[in-house]
């Protein structure tokens, strides 16, 4: 047990080293684009305000009436922040696929070496899985750090009559995208990450199906992921489908969803174990 854990840590560290360049690029881009947004958006706003004031000899109150107040939320609601988040999601989604296929289609066929390591192949699987989650949390942390850096920058650029004081927490609470990625409620945090876990488990299963059965595996994978998706989404749409809004209480829905997500996750894990141990081919 101690040995397996040690091997898992070694392999995870090895995978992390391979991810690092890509991850640091994503983190750097996130910070850079965010920073540009923290400067560009309020500067542009102040430019419009100043132009208005000069052209119309208006007062600050009149300018606020015309353009509205500027709060930190104004920046976080732009593409300068949403863009890097989308970039991070698509980047890590791409890496979740790449993390497997590079072993087969890289310059050298490293899949041979990895599959011949004297360790359980599930250790290999988990090392890749953990690394993706390290990537996700690193990007979330970068985004959070960026928000802390951004707040004083924005408040320094916007002159006080035009600035609406909103705390960082309030800015996060107002933004549905942030609420999804940085849930302030622990229960919601568990759900969001649980869904992420299951999505990754299903994706890995689909990849292993393809690596095991080729074209047939792709078809199988698509069918499996559609069934999994339908199973998880069905209770959410059931009240609408049956025209009965009161079919399920919120707590009941939560329990059903937890059971379904756990079932899909465990099933994917077992299928992946079978595939990587018995069916995968170099």
């Amino acid at each position: 047990m101690k040995n397996s854990l040690h091997t898992l840590l070694k392999l995870t560290n090895f995978e992390l080293e391979r991810l690092s360049k890509f991850l640091f690029t994503l983190m750097g881009l996130t910070l850079l684009i965010n920073l540009a947004g923290y400067i560009y958006t309020p500067t542009q706003y102040m430019g419009r305000i100043n132009e208005y004031l000069t052209q119309n000899s208006a007062t600050a109150d009149e300018a606020v009436k015309a353009f509205g107040h500027f709060s930190f939320y104004t920046v976080t609601n732009t593409l300068w922040i949403g863009g890097p988040i989308a970039l991070g999601i698509s980047g890590l989604l791409f890496y979740s696929v790449f993390i497997w296929y590079r072993e087969w289609f890289g310059k050298n066929t490293f899949a041979y070496r990895l599959l011949m390591l004297p360790v359980s192949r599930m250790t290999l699987y988990f090392s890749k899985f953990i690394v993706i989650f390290i990537g996700i949390f690193s990007l979330i942390a970068t985004q959070m750090v960026s928000l802390f850096i951004g707040y004083p920058i924005v408040s320094a650029i916007i002159e006080s009559p035009y600035f609406r004081e909103l705390s960082l927490i309030e800015s996060i609470q107002m933004n549905p995208l942030f609420l999804f990625f940085f849930p302030l409620d622990f229960g919601y945090f568990v759900i969001v990450n649980g869904v992420g876990f299951v999505v990754l488990l299903v994706l890995f299963t689909v990849i292993l199906m393809e690596r095991s059965f080729g074209v047939k595996g792709i078809v199988l994978g698509i069918v499996y992921s559609l069934i999994a998706l339908a199973a998880v989404l069905l209770p959410l749409f059931l009240p609408d489908l049956l025209n009965n809004r009161y079919l399920l209480y919120g707590s009941e829905l939560m329990i059903i969803e937890t059971i379904l997500l756990t079932t899909v996750g465990v099933l994917s894990l077992f299928m992946s174990r079978h595939l990587i141990n018995k069916k995968i081919t170099v």
């Binding site: 890289g106 310059k107 050298n108 066929t109 490293f110 041979y112 070496r113 004297p118 359980s120």
Partner: peptide
């Protein structure tokens, strides 16, 4: 089994370490 990879070595005809 995984443990057997300490008992049998395979040398394929393609490069298998990271370039």
């Amino acid at each position: 089994s995984p443990a057997m990879y300490n008992k049998v070595a395979f040398i394929p005809d393609v490069a298998i370490m990271l370039p």
